[in-house]
Design a protein around this nucleic acid. Structure first.
Lengths: 233, 233
DNA sequence: TCACTCTCAGTGGCCTAGCCTCCTAGACCC
DNA sequence: GGGTCTAGGAGGCTAGGCCACTGAGAGTGA
C-alpha cells in the first residue's frame, strides 16, 4: 500500500516531527526523575521553556502522550502521569517496529477466537442477520469472479459486533489495517476464497447454534488456514 | 454530547477537549465523503476554517489521529488516510463507552492467558529472572504489610515481556490503565495479596517448566479469582 | 522530441503573543 | 470549626506570521 518503508530502512534517522522527539524527551525526564503514576509533570510553560519549544508544539506532544494513555492532562491542574515510565518506554519501543506479520497473526488469532466464542453466546437475531448478509455478499463477490475481500471484511466485522465487547472490538480496530493486509494477501491465492467462504459458513453455524467451543474451534482453524500464506512480501 | 456518567468508573471527570471533538468531526467528514485509504484530507488551513477552529488546535487533533494510526501527515503534501472509514468509525464509537469493567476483565483474561502460554514457550533465562525478581518484590511488599501492588504490576509486566509479542504487548498497554484499577481494587481485599502471590508462583513454575497449557490454565484461574471483586465501586 | 532543471504555489511545521476558563490553596468571615 | 471568597497558576484556544518541504509545470538545452 503506502510506503512508510523509506524511513524504517535506516532505522530511526528520519524523525522530522518535533512533537515525537518531545514525547521521548518527556518520557526520559519522567524516567530520570523517577516519577510514578499520580505524579505531575512541570507546568506547560516551564516545560516548553525547558525543552526549548513553544507551548503549541508541546501541547501536541502532550496530546500524543494522552492518546497513548501515558498521561492525563487536567485543565487547571496539570498533566499527571498514568503509567510508570517502564510501561511508557515499552510502548514507545514497539511503535518503531510494528507490522511484524507473525505477531499480528498471533494477535488476530487470540482476539478472533475469543470473539467467535462470545458471539456464539451473545449474538442477537440482528447479529445473525448481519453475519448472513456478509456471507451473501462474499458469495456474490466470488460468484462474480472477485476475491471476496469486502465480504470477508464484513464477515469479521459482523462477528466482532456480535461479540458485544467494546474493548475487544477496540483492540481489533487497533490492528485492523494490518489484518486487512494479510487477508487480501490470503484471498489472492487460487481457490482460497471458496475455502474461506466454507469456513465462514461453519463458523456461522456454530454461532447460530450458540456453541462457543465449536465457534472458537472453527474460527481458530480458519485463521490458521488463512494465515498460512508464504510470506513472500 | 459528553457523557458525565462514564466519569464514575475510574473517577475521571468528563473533560471536554476541543481536539477530541475535532477528531470525531474529521472522522465524520471522512465517512460522509466516502474517503478511503490513500485519500487526502483538506488542507489544514481550509479544514481549520471549515471547522471553525485555529490551526494549532486542528494540529492537535491531527496528531491524535496520527498516533492512533488513522492518518499519516506528510510535510508538504497533506494528511492522507490510512484506515478505511468504517474502521475509523468503529474506533470512534468505542471511545464513547470504554471503561466498562466486565469487558475489561474479559479482554484482560483473553490477552494474559495467551501471554502466559507464549511466555512458557519463549521465555529466556533473563525473562525468568525478571519474573522471579517481581515475585521477590511482591513478597517483600506483603511482608512489610503492603498490598503488593507494585510487585503485582511488575509480575504481569514481566510475563508480558517474556511472551515476546510486541503487538500483544501493545494491546496490553492499551488497556493497561483500566487493568491497574481493578488490580489495586482486588489486592485491597483482606488475604488477597497472599493468595495472588501463591497464584503467581504457580504461573511462574508452569512458565519455567515450559508448559504453555499449564501456564494458560494457571493464569486463567488467577484472573478469575482476582476479577471476582464485588464491583461496588 | 525528449529529458533535465528550475521555479513557485501550496502544504505542513513551528513560533510568538495573548486572552480565556478552570482549579485550588489560603485568606477571610461567620 | 466551617463555610465563602479570591488571586494566582494551570491548561485551552486563537490569531497571525515565517520557514521548510513537496510536486508539478514552465523553461531550457541536447
Amino acid at each position: 500500500m503506502r510506503d512508510p518503508e523509506k524511513a524504517r530502512t535506516l532505522g530511526k534517522v528520519a524523525r522530522p516531527r518535533l512533537y515525537e522527539q518531545l514525547m521521548e524527551q518527556i518520557l526520559g525526564y519522567v524516567e530520570s526523575e523517577q516519577l510514578g503514576p499520580g505524579d505531575r509533570l512541570p507546568a506547560e510553560r516551564d516545560l516548553a521553556d525547558q525543552l526549548g519549544v513553544s507551548r503549541a508544539t508541546l501541547a501536541q506532544a502532550l496530546v500524543a502522550l494522552e492518546v497513548l494513555g501515558v498521561i492525563d492532562v487536567q485543565h487547571g491542574t496539570g498533566a499527571v502521569l498514568v503509567y510508570r515510565p517502564s510501561m511508557a518506554a515499552l510502548l514507545r519501543k514497539l511503535r518503531e517496529h510494528q507490522n511484524r506479520l507473525p505477531e499480528i497473526v498471533e494477535a488476530r488469532s487470540t482476539l478472533e477466537v475469543k470473539l467467535a466464542a462470545l458471539a456464539a453466546e451473545r449474538r442477537t437475531p440482528e447479529d445473525l442477520a448481519a453475519i448472513d448478509e456478509a456471507l451473501a455478499v462474499m458469495a456474490d463477490e466470488i460468484a462474480r469472479g472477485d476475491r471476496g475481500v469486502h465480504g470477508d471484511e464484513l464477515f469479521h466485522q459482523a462477528i466482532t459486533a456480535a461479540a458485544h465487547s467494546a474493548v475487544l472490538a477496540q483492540m481489533m480496530g487497533f490492528i485492523g489495517e494490518m489484518i486487512l493486509e494479510t487477508r487480501i494477501e490470503s484471498l489472492g491465492q487460487p481457490g482460497r476464497p471458496e475455502v474461506s467462504l466454507a469456513a465462514h459458513r461453519g463458523i456461522t453455524e456454530a454461532i447460530r447454534a450458540g456453541d462457543p467451543q465449536a465457534a472458537a474451534a472453527a474460527m481458530g482453524g480458519h485463521i490458521d488456514v488463512v494465515s498460512d500464506v508464504p510470506l513472500l512480501h
